[in-house]
């Protein structure tokens, strides 16, 4: 199978976010960056499909040159090739620009792809937009938030998470899948993998060489401001014998919170 996985470089989820003085983004200095957590499930799923059915896994990132680091990680996990679409634009919280870059790349360089895999959303923008947008731009089916995937020949069955249930979805290849936690358990890089990854060359394609039409690239949103959420005022802490604590919880819910 010809498998393409798309990953994003994001701030470590543990990190403390600081807002830049201009209120247009975060301060990147001093932050640790990682591969967005859901994207790891997508990489793992692609590796498993290749192991079961043969083929090739190519991992692609749209981002700054610093993102080469996460692409190396994916190579160390076992991906065959990696590629960076270099885009130095700051985080715009817009999905369409990145989706258009990916769709152009796929059309130009990977016309014979079978499956495009994404994480269900990236940490940071938390948009969950790019996978469905790419599917639309390529005119192929999409299944998002997938927790189980079965591919048989040119057909796929995916279980996608919805409120309180799973949807069983059937589709044909080529298609777009976005991964949810539960799909698999991502592997760690091996030492051998890390050594091999170091030797691999990662081609870099500047985003403006992809021939993306202007109406995708012009910003469609204006960032008015990015700010810290209002801090909640501290609540009350009690330490009482169990029966009294239970009474106090119920009294609080009734009289103060007015919930029951």
């Amino acid at each position: 199978m010809n498998l393409l996985v798309f990953v994003k470089r994001v701030p470590d989820t543990e990190s403390k976010i600081r807002i830049a003085p201009d209120g247009q983004g975060i301060v990147e200095e001093g932050l640790n960056f990682i591969i967005s957590p859901y994207d790891e499930y997508a990489v793992e799923e692609a590796l498993r499909l290749r192991e079961a059915k043969g083929g090739k896994v190519t991992v692609v990132c749209v981002g700054k040159e610093e993102a080469l680091l996460i692409l190396r990680k994916c190579l160390a996990m076992g991906a065959d090739e990696a590629l960076l679409i270099k885009d130095s634009a700051p985080e715009s919280f817009e999905g369409l620009r990145v989706a258009a870059a990916i769709a152009s790349l796929v059309k130009q360089r990977f016309p014979n792809f079978d499956l495009l895999l994404f994480g269900k959303q990236s940490f940071g923008a938390d948009n969950a937009q790019v996978p469905a947008m790419v599917a639309e731009l390529l005119g192929i089916p999409q299944v998002n938030v997938v927790v189980k995937l079965i591919i048989e020949g040119r057909n796929g069955v995916a279980y996608r998470e919805i409120e309180g249930a799973l949807e069983k979805v059937v589709f044909s290849l080529p298609a777009v899948i976005s991964a949810q936690k539960g799909l698999n358990e991502p592997r760690y890089e091996t030492l051998k993998g890390i050594m091999a990854a170091k030797k691999k060359e990662i081609p870099i394609i500047p985003i403006d060489e992809l021939g993306i039409s202007e109406d995708f690239l012009t910003p469609k949103m204006e960032i008015i401001k990015l700010e810290m959420p209002p801090t909640k005022k501290a609540g009350r802490i009690i330490q009482l014998p169990p029966e009294e604590a239970a009474k106090e919880i119920v009294r609080f819910l009734r009289e103060e919170a007015k919930i029951i």
Partner: peptide
């Protein structure tokens, strides 16, 4: 909310 609720983003939409 963005960054898993660690920041709030205010946007104007232009289309």
């Amino acid at each position: 909310p963005v960054y898993a609720g660690k920041a709030l983003l205010t946007l104007k939409l232009k289309t």
